[in-house]
Amino acid sequence: MRFCYELSAALIGGAAIVLVQAQFAVALTPEQVNNIAKDVTVRIDGSTSASNGSGVIIERQEGTDNIVYTVLTNWHVVEKPEQYTLRTPDDSTHVVSQIQRIPGADLAILRFRSDKSYNTVQRGNSDQLSEGQRVYFTGYPAPIQVETKRSYRFFTANIAGRLSTAKDGYALVYDGPSLPGMSGGPVFDENGRLVAIHGETESVGSGLGSAGNYGIPINTFFALQPQATNVAVRTTPTPSAPLPTRTQTPTPPPLQTAVTGQSQPGTVRLSAPPTVQSAAPVAANNSQTQATPPTVITSPARPVVAAPRPNIVLGSVSLPEYIVPTNPNQNAFAPNISKINELLQRENLTPVACTENPKVEIIGVQYTVCAAPNAARSAGRYEVRTGGF
C-alpha cells in the first residue's frame, strides 16, 4: 500500500508551504492484527440471554486504588434496564459501574474498575477507508451447535460501500459472516487500529448468510462523544471510590490548511490531538464551538499531557520525548517511530522535547512530533494531511 505525507503549514509571509513525500507502509499480517484485537475485545453479558454483545476497551484512567476502563459498544446491547457485566480477555468478570448513551448513533460508553492492567485500542481514521480495503472485526457471538459458551471470533472482510446518509450512524458497509452477540465489537484496519463499531447485519434469507454488515465509523463517535448522556446504572456493585475526575485538556489554537486557507477547529480529545479531515469540533461547556476566522500561527504553546503509567501493548516500545501520543496510555509500535524518524530526516529537522519552545509541531492522527526550527521550517504547527502517522 502506498501513500504520501503532505505537510500543510500556516500562511507565513503570504505564502503557503506544502511538501509531498512518498512513503511505503507495510500492513500488519492478519495474525498480528488478531493479537492486538484479542487483547482489547470484551464480552458483554446482561441478566437475560437476549442481552449479549461485545465491546472494545478504548481508554484507561488511573484511580486512587484501581484503574477505571472505558468500553465502547452499541446502545442496543445495553439499552434494557438490567444488570451488565464485562468479561475481559483474561477471563475475569467485571461489573459495569457506569453507562453513557451517545445521542445520534447506536453507541454507548461503559465503565468498569479493576486493579489489573488491560490494553487499550489505538484509534484509526475512518475517513481514510474506501471500497475494497480489507478490515477485520471481532466479538463474542452466542454459542451455536457444539459450543457450550460464548467464544472469541476474528473475521476478515472487505469494505463494500460508504453511505452518505445512514440510520443510527451505520455508514460503513462490509462483507463477511456475522453472528448474534457480536454487536458492539470493534472493526480494525490493516494496522490494527479501531475504525468502526460493528452492529448491524442485513440477512438475505435462511441459509444464505448476510447481504452485508454495517458499522459506525469511529470518527462519528468522536464527533458525537461530547453529547454523551448518563444512564441510570442498572447494577448494585460493591461500593468503591468515586470515578476519578477527568481534567479537560485545553483546546489548541486552530490549524491552517495550505489548500483552502481556512482555519480548522481543534478536535475532541478522548484519545485526542487534532485529526485530519472531518474532525469533530470541541464542545465547550456542552455548547457548539464557533469556527474562528483564518489567523497566522506563530509558534503557539502546546500543553503536554503528562502520561500515566505506560500501557503494555504487544510489540510496543517506549516513546521518545519528542513524540507525544494522541492517547497518553498508548505506547507506540516500532514501525511508527521509524516512519516518524524518516520524515524528520527528509525534512532535515532535529527532534526536540515537546516541552521546549520555540519548536516545530507536526500534528498527526496518532502522534504529535516536535523538532527544532530550521531555515526551511520556521516555528509553528504543521499538519500531516495524507497518510502520515
Rank of each mutant, 00 (worst) to 15 (best):
S92L: 14
S130A: 09
R234W: 09
Q290T: 12
A171G: 06
V233M: 13
N191E: 08
V135P: 06
Y214L: 08
S318V: 11
I17V: 11
D45T: 04
I363C: 13
R60E: 13
P300N: 06
G205L: 12
R60L: 12
L349W: 05
I197C: 03
P237S: 01
P237W: 00
D106A: 02
V204R: 15
G207V: 09
P253G: 07
S287H: 10
Q262G: 11
T295R: 14
A211E: 15
P242Q: 07
A196N: 06
E202F: 15
I99F: 03
L11M: 14
S51T: 15
Y5T: 02
P294I: 09
N35A: 13
L163V: 12
Y214N: 06
S92F: 14
G14T: 05
H198K: 05
A171H: 00
T165A: 15
G199I: 01
A50K: 15
H94S: 05
T275I: 12
V259C: 00
M1D: 05
G205E: 09
N52S: 15
G205Y: 11
N191K: 13
A142H: 12
G139Q: 04
G176K: 09
S114W: 06
E31G: 11
Q345H: 03
R153C: 01
Q23A: 14
S278Q: 12
E62L: 13
K149C: 04
M182N: 09
V78G: 02
A105Y: 01
Y152E: 00
A258P: 04
Y5S: 02
T289F: 14
E190K: 04
V26P: 01
W75L: 08
P300W: 08
V352I: 15
E321M: 11
G261P: 10
G261I: 08
N158M: 09
I44A: 02
G181E: 03
P30A: 01
H94P: 09
V276D: 08
V18S: 09
V233P: 01
S271F: 08
G185A: 04
H76A: 10
Y84I: 03
T251F: 06
L319S: 11
P237L: 01
Q23I: 10
S178K: 07
P274A: 13
I216T: 03
Q122T: 14
N158C: 03
I197A: 03
A10M: 06
A166S: 10
S51W: 13
S54M: 06
T267V: 14
T93V: 12
I337D: 09
I363T: 12
A157L: 11
A196I: 07
S8F: 07
D127V: 03
N374P: 05
S54N: 04
G176V: 03
Y170H: 04
F112M: 00
V282F: 08
L110T: 00
N329M: 10
F155Y: 14
K38C: 06
V365Y: 10
V282D: 07
T93G: 02
T85P: 05
V369F: 05
A307P: 12
N374M: 04
S164V: 09
T289H: 12
